[in-house]
Amino acid sequence: MTESVWQPSAALTTLKARADLLATIRQFFSARNILEVDTPLLAKYSVTDPYMQALTADNPIGATERYFLQTSPEYAMKRLLASGSGPIYQLCKAFRKGEAGGYHNPEFTMLEWYRPDFNHYQLMDEVEQLVSQVLNSDKPFNRISYRDVFLDAFSIDPHSCDCETVRTIAQQHLDIQMDSDKKDDWLNLLLAEIIEPELGVDTPVFITDYPASQSALAKVSMDSSGIKVAQRFELYSQGIELANGYFELTDAEEQRQRFQQDQQLRQVLSAPTIEADPFLLAAMAQGLPSCAGVALGVDRLLMVSQQLATIAETISFSIDRA
C-alpha cells in the first residue's frame, strides 16, 4: 500500500465543480417545477437485463432472500409515476457489478428524470437544454439515426443486413475473437470500439432509432422505411456516452414478455436468474402514464465539462480507494 492511497482521486477544484454541477441540475428542474424524489437503493428486485449484473446484499431484516443495490432508480420511479407523481427527477448513486475502467466505476452518480406526456424527441430537447447549460455551449446538438451512423462508417444498413456481414466487418477492423451468432453483439462491438470514440467530438450528438431488438424498456414503432425501430436515444459528447433515453413502454403484458425473453437469454449466457420485479409490473398494470424518461451519468458529464481523462478524477474516492 502506498502512502497516497488515502488521498482523494479527485482534485479539490473538481469537487467544487461537482458541487456546482449538482446545484445547477437542481436549479434546472426547480425552474421547471419537476419534483425531486428519493427512492430505495437497496431493494428486493433488480433488472433482468442479461448484460447488466447487480450487486447483491444480505437481507437487512434478517430473512433469507437477498437484496440488490440498484443499477438505476427506474423501476421505483415508474411506480411513483403510476401513483400520480407527475414529472419527477432523482440524483442518486447507482451500482453495477464488474464495471470499472476509464469511463466506469461500480458506484456512480446518476441523474434520472421522467416527463409524462413527453415523447423522446421532446425529452431530447430538454436534455439538450440542460447539457448545453452545463457545457456553456450555444451550438445546437446534432441528431443522427442508428442506421445512418452505420451507413456512414461501414456502408451497411444495420436493420437489414445479416449477422455474417456484420461479423465480417468487425473481424476486418478489430483483432478480436467472439463466439456469437447474435447480430446485436457484433453491432454493439462495432459501435463501442469504432464508432463511439468519434461521436460528438466537436458537438454533442444524439443517436436515435435503434434496432427494435435493442428496445430495452422503450416503445417500438415503424420508421419511414417500414422498419421497426426502438423509440430511444443516446447522447454522446467527446466520444463518451452521457445519456440513454426512452419513449417508455407502458404495456404491462409486453413488459412481462420482455422480462421473460431476458430470462431465456440469461440461461443461454449462464447468467444468474433474476426474478422480474412484480412491483413494477403491478404499477404498469394499474396504469403507467405515457411518458419519456432518461438516465444521465453525472460523473461523465463532469468529465466532459472539466475536460478530465478518467471518471476516477470526478469522484472523491474511486473504487480502488473506497
Rank of each mutant, 00 (worst) to 15 (best):
residue 162 D to C: 10
residue 84 G to K: 08
residue 84 G to H: 06
residue 223 D to T: 04
residue 146 Y to L: 12
residue 163 C to L: 10
residue 225 S to N: 14
residue 153 A to S: 10
residue 286 Q to R: 10
residue 6 W to C: 05
residue 192 A to Q: 14
residue 15 L to A: 00
residue 204 P to I: 01
residue 43 A to V: 09
residue 68 F to C: 01
residue 152 D to K: 15
residue 212 A to C: 04
residue 179 D to L: 15
residue 313 E to I: 00
residue 218 A to W: 12
residue 56 T to V: 12
residue 181 D to K: 11
residue 116 P to S: 14
residue 123 L to R: 03
residue 128 E to C: 09
residue 234 E to R: 02
residue 313 E to C: 01
residue 283 A to H: 09
residue 35 L to F: 08
residue 304 V to P: 09
residue 315 I to L: 03
residue 138 D to W: 04
residue 150 F to D: 04
residue 205 V to R: 05
residue 226 G to C: 02
residue 280 L to S: 07
residue 92 C to M: 04
residue 106 P to I: 07
residue 200 G to S: 00
residue 315 I to Q: 02
residue 257 Q to K: 14
residue 65 E to W: 03
residue 230 A to T: 13
residue 309 A to N: 13
residue 54 A to R: 05
residue 258 R to I: 04
residue 53 Q to W: 03
residue 275 E to S: 13
residue 231 Q to E: 15
residue 58 D to I: 10
residue 49 D to V: 10
residue 151 L to N: 14
residue 23 A to R: 13
residue 167 R to N: 04
residue 8 P to S: 13
residue 290 S to R: 07
residue 24 T to F: 02
residue 78 K to I: 03
residue 296 L to G: 01
residue 111 L to D: 00
residue 19 A to F: 14
residue 139 K to M: 06
residue 7 Q to M: 12
residue 275 E to Q: 13
residue 244 N to R: 06
residue 124 M to I: 06
residue 83 S to G: 09
residue 196 E to F: 13
residue 322 A to P: 03
residue 306 Q to P: 09
